[in-house]
Simulated scan of single mutants.
Amino acid sequence: MSNGRNFRLLSLAHSALTSYSDGRSSLRELVNTLDAVWSQLEMPEAWMNDFRSEWLTLETVLAVTSDDPPRRRDEEMERIVVESVSALSSLIRLEES
């Protein structure tokens, strides 16, 4: 895979994270976009594991809050989401520089 393709995928992930942080997209949209990006990236294994770990945290919060009946995210879950979004943003910034 070319560096150009990785850069485009990382840019897409960055845009998805920004969109979510700005309230322009849902957690479900963010999780789906990050999953698609992860499946196409070719990065070092440790980086991929860190990315997937943070994605899994977001996916778990989504799954818990999507239960039947749906559960509202409490402060703790919101804190976890914010931390994961921040960690993912940091991972991406490190690779783009």
Rank of each mutant, 00 (worst) to 15 (best):
S2F: 07
S2N: 15
N3G: 13
G4A: 13
R5Q: 11
N6H: 02
N6F: 00
N6C: 01
N6R: 07
N6A: 05
F7E: 13
L9R: 01
S11K: 06
A16I: 03
A16E: 02
L17H: 01
Y20V: 02
Y20C: 01
Y20I: 02
D22Y: 10
R24T: 11
S26N: 10
S26W: 07
R28I: 08
R28C: 09
E29V: 09
E29S: 15
L30N: 03
V31Y: 03
V31R: 01
T33H: 05
L34Q: 04
L34G: 02
D35Q: 14
W38S: 15
W38R: 14
Q40S: 12
L41M: 07
E42A: 10
P44A: 06
P44E: 14
A46Q: 14
A46C: 07
W47E: 10
N49P: 04
D50F: 09
D50P: 03
F51Y: 15
F51V: 05
S53L: 12
S53Y: 12
W55F: 14
W55P: 01
L56H: 09
L58Q: 02
L58T: 02
L62T: 04
A63I: 08
V64H: 11
D67K: 14
D68L: 11
D68R: 11
D68G: 09
P69M: 06
R71P: 03
R71C: 11
D74R: 08
E75P: 05
E75Q: 14
E76A: 12
M77E: 15
E78P: 00
R79D: 14
R79N: 14
I80F: 05
V81T: 04
E83R: 11
S86M: 08
S86D: 15
A87N: 12
L91A: 02
L91H: 05
R93W: 07
L94G: 13
E95P: 01
E95S: 15
E96A: 15
E96W: 06
S97D: 14
